[in-house]
Design a protein around this nucleic acid. Structure first.
Length: 563
RNA sequence: GCGCCUAUAGCUCAACCGGAUAGAGCAACGGCCUUCUAAGCCGUAGGUUGCAGGUUCGAGUCCUGCUGGGCGCGCCA
């Protein structure tokens, strides 16, 4: 409906130009807003406000001219029951009942496809997220990355993109050596309190579990690789391979429990093994963006907006972490991803400038702002009004598994995705666990379950209906109109959330939709004697249930049929 | 010192690329279950959108400067 009014106003602007009321070269951005206040109608436009100056008349006067012309438009007036000029010059549109209820037909015909679009035109987009190193269990910050990243993917899929979910991990660097040493120490019976414990070794209890499994000769499978433990506490290389596989498997199990699956696991070590790091370095040298100083090789990142140049190759001959990162992103580009989104914790934001600088310095025609980044801020976990900082297994942090086990997958996903990624997040375990009206997850799911229950009972009582024979004009109550307006918003909300890369908008919308549904449920009886009213309400109920289910699907939260 | 994020009701957060009287939930208070799930609904109260300027017909939103909080600023990742 918004699109229809927009196109009509667009035509009208042309008409006003031909009447010389507006200058030929004026291109207003036609804006139709949902109203906040019902007294302002269903939709409103600021066209007159934006054009008044160009037209040389005051906004209300111009609005009058616009309304006059629209009223002469028969097709238009079938959809709009009345218009009002309000405030400084807004034009408020009151939709006809048939225009409002048209959305029900759309939803019931399109089903799960309602709200989807082809904005992405089937183009490839790669989303890299989580990308935790295999040195321990996933923590709550990774959980936020997983929830936000996966919802982003779902949004992009819903808007016509061809999405690849990718997980990149460092399986070779200094941290991994440290991991191997820690497991070895545990295998030899040392504890973090002992004198021989490695400096900066990983102290969590899980290290001991890895060591035990290694000594027992267990076999683990992760990322399609099968690793059998050698059981020899002296074989550090065998320990390293086993520990990485063991922890990768554990992370995969956590992600699976969280409903997140990846298409590609990319190993940092493969970039070295295939000479990709060396290739990138050579290219950077050839292009003249490097120099040697103090025994190290430097990249002139300052030529691309960095505040100082960065070391690429250390005096010990090893590369710093962002070099393989540049090689990795070159690889993404070469795989044909015109759009790449990296979802990561804001504590790593300093890498952005470096990676982009390295990519520009390669001079392979990568656009300047590529790739995109979505950064999420820190998560604080609260219980009983106090911050929770440790878990038994990991020691120094709260694990994702702790949250899933304690509050469930649905609530964890919702809470981690429902806030803008740019804001710090307080995860209140007590609230997420509560099965009361405090908890927005249950509030939304309950709305869905209630509608399912109504549909079941209608069927049991033989109250059948078909869309074709239902007169939707029977939906006249205030609550029904409000709900219809909410339903009509869904495609736009999905579109904006995908464009802005903001999954939390879906969570917000669902809450509002559920509120409109609960108000309606309390105000109106569905299974009434009057068949005309009953069928219309059952149709609206079916449409609402569909949109609630579609929205929850975008968040990766289940839509239960009963609670 | 520099960079990024942030500051909105007592608390947790929204506010659709600048729009009308800044909205929800929780907490507080008052109502609604012989009727489809009360995990619900209705109502009351709660605000100088951190501060000071600027741009605009119009600013929580954009710009400048301050102040407070978080995160970064390594030949760690």
């Amino acid at each position: 409906m918004k699109a229809f009014i927009t196109s009509q106003l667009d035509q009208l602007v042309s008409q006003l130009k031909s009447e010389a009321l507006l200058p030929e070269d004026f291109q207003p951005r036609i804006q139709i807003d949902n109203t906040k206040d019902k007294a302002h109608g269903d939709l409103a436009s600021n066209l007159a406000l934006m054009s008044a100056k160009k037209a040389g008349m005051n906004p209300r006067e111009l609005a009058g001219q616009i309304v006059e012309r629209l009223e002469a438009n028969g097709e238009f007036m079938q959809q709009v029951s009345k218009m009002e000029i309000a405030g400084p010059g807004f034009i408020n549109f009151f939709l006809s009942t048939s225009a409002q209820t048209a959305v029900i037909k759309e939803i019931l015909e399109q089903k799960a496809a309602f709200g989807t679009s082809n904005q992405g035109q089937g183009e490839k987009v790669q989303v890299e997220f989580v990308s935790a190193n295999p040195t321990g269990p996933l923590h709550v910050g990774h959980g936020r990355g997983a929830a936000v990243g996966d919802c982003l993917c779902r949004l992009l899929e819903a808007t016509g993109w061809s999405v690849t979910r990718e997980f990149y991990y460092n399986d070779a660097g200094a941290q991994i050596s440290n991991l191997a040493l820690s497991v070895q120490a545990r295998a030899k019976g040392l504890t973090p309190e002992d004198a021989g414990w490695p400096e900066d070794g990983y102290r969590g209890e899980y290290i001991q579990e890895v060591a035990r499994a290694y000594l027992n000769g267990e076999t683990v499978t992760a990322d399609d690789q099968e690793v059998k433990a050698a059981g020899d506490a002296e074989d550090l290389e065998a320990i390293r391979r086993f520990a990485v596989a063991y922890l990768r498997r554990e992370q995969d199990l956590d992600l699976k429990a969280f409903g997140v699956a990846f298409d590609v696991y990319f190993l940092e070590s493969s970039l070295y093994a295939e000479g990709k790091v060396e290739e990138a370095v050579q290219r950077l040298i050839e292009k003249g963006y490097t120099y040697e100083d103090g025994g190290a090789l430097w990249l002139k990142t300052t030529e691309f907006g960095d505040d100082k140049d960065r070391v690429m190759r250390k005096t010990d001959g090893g590369y710093t972490y962002f070099v393989p990162d540049v090689a990795y992103h070159l690889n993404k580009w070469q795989r044909g991803f015109g759009k790449v989104i990296n979802e990561q914790g804001a504590d790593h934001h300093s890498t952005i400038t470096r990676v982009r600088a390295g990519l520009q310095a390669l001079e392979v025609d990568i656009p300047e702002g590529w790739p995109d980044y979505v950064l999420h801020q820190m998560v604080t976990v609260m219980r009983s009004g106090e911050e929770v900082k440790i878990s038994k297994r990991a020691g120094s942090y709260v694990t994702l598994r702790d949250l899933i086990d304690e509050v469930g997958c649905d609530a964890t996903r919702y809470f981690l995705a429902a806030r803008a990624a740019t804001s710090q997040l307080t995860f209140d375990i007590d609230l997420a666990r509560s099965q009361t009206n405090d908890n927005p997850v249950y509030y939304i799911q309950y709305a869905h379950a209630r509608l399912c229950s109504v549909a079941r009972q209608a069927q049991e009582k033989g109250m059948s209906w078909t869309l074709a024979t239902t007169d939707l004009d029977a939906l006249q109550s205030e609550q029904e109109q409000a709900l219809l307006n909410q339903l009509a918003r869904f495609p736009e909300v999905v579109s904006i959330a995908a464009r802005e890369l903001e999954p939390h908008q879906i969570a917000q919308y669902l809450r509002e939709l559920a509120a409109a549904m609960h108000s309606w449920y309390n105000a109106c009886q569905f299974l009434v004697e009057d068949e005309k009213v009953r069928s219309a309400r059952l149709a609206l109920a079916a449409a609402t249930r569909q949109v609630l289910a579609s929205g929850l699907q975008l968040l990766g939260v289940s839509a239960p049929e009963s609670m």
